[in-house]
Nucleic acid binder design. Structure first.
Lengths: 138, 138
DNA sequence: CAGGATCCAGGGAGATACTG
DNA sequence: CAGTATCTCCCTGGATCCTG
C-alpha cells in the first residue's frame, strides 16, 4: 500500500470508496464504538461493567461493538474460566493509540458545543418560524 | 452546566446521554459529514462539485448533510442569484477548527490501516473459518 | 443547477428467551 | 455472568420524479 502523504489523501482518495478513511469511519461511525473506547480509557472492564458505564447501550450492541473492536485488534478480550464466567475487556496497544485522536475530537466538541448550539438555535429561528409548540429542543 | 475537565468528562459524563460528546458523535457519526468536511478542506465548492468530489453520496444525503452542517454553523451556504442558480458551500471558522481533530483521526486510520486489516484477517481465520473445512486444530 | 418530495428496501437497534 | 439467537420495528439512506 502506497502511503501517500496525509494531505494528498485528504484531497484525493478519501472521497473514493477505496480509501482507508472509509473503513475507519465505518468503525467510529457508530456511536457506541467511541463511547466504549472511552469506557475502557483507563483500564479493563467486565461486560456488565461496560454495560453500566456506557449508558443506553443494549446488550446486543455492546457485544456487537466489542466484537468489532476485537476483530480490529483494538480491544483484547480475556476470559477467566472461573466459576461464574468472567470476561475482561481492555484496549490493546493499537486501541490505546486511538485514544489520542478521539480525545482531540472530544475536546473539540466540548469547546464548540456552545457555538454549535447557538448556531442551531439561530438556524432554526431563522428558517423554521413557529409551526406549533412542536419545537425540537434538546 | 458542570464544565468538568476533559479527563473527568471522559470518564464520567460521556456515557450519559446528556453529554456533549453524544451530539458530536451524532454529527460525525454519519460517514458523509466527515467526507464533506474533507471535500471543503481547501475552499468552497458548489453542490455539483461536492457531489462529484464525494463519491457515492446521493443527492439526498449530500443535501441533508450539508443542511446539518449549516445548521451547526460549520458550513456556510452562499446563494448566487445568477441565471442558473449557483450555490457555494464553504467551511465557517468553526468548521475549519474541526479539520484538526478530523485530520488526526484520518492520520490515525492511515497509520493503522495495516494493523487493523491484519487483525481482522487473523480474527476471521481463528474464529470463523468458512464452512466446508473439517480441520479442527487448536 | 440546486434541491424538494416520495416510495421503498435494508439494516441498525431494542426486547425477549435461552444456553454454558 | 456473559453471551447467542430471533423477531420485529423503525430510521437511514438510495432511487426516482419533479420544481424554481
Amino acid at each position: 500500500m502506497v502511503t501517500t502523504e496525509a494531505e494528498t489523501v485528504l484531497r484525493g482518495s478519501p472521497y473514493r470508496a477505496d480509501c482507508p478513511t472509509r473503513h475507519i469511519l465505518d468503525r467510529i461511525g457508530d456511536r457506541w464504538t467511541v463511547l466504549i473506547v472511552g469506557a475502557l480509557w483507563d483500564g479493563s472492564a467486565r461486560f456488565s461493567e461496560l454495560r453500566r458505564r456506557v449508558e443506553g447501550v443494549s446488550q446486543k450492541m455492546l457485544t456487537q461493538t466489542l466484537r468489532g473492536l476485537e476483530r480490529d485488534g483494538l480491544v483484547r478480550r480475556t476470559v477467566h474460566p472461573e466459576v461464574p464466567v468472567r470476561v475482561e475487556y481492555a484496549l490493546t496497544e493499537a486501541g490505546r493509540t486511538l485514544r489520542e485522536p478521539l480525545r482531540a475530537l472530544q475536546e473539540w466538541s466540548i469547546a464548540h458545543l456552545g457555538d454549535v448550539s447557538a448556531a442551531q438555535e439561530a438556524y432554526d429561528h431563522a428558517n423554521r418560524p413557529p409551526l406549533d409548540s412542536t419545537d425540537r429542543d434538546e
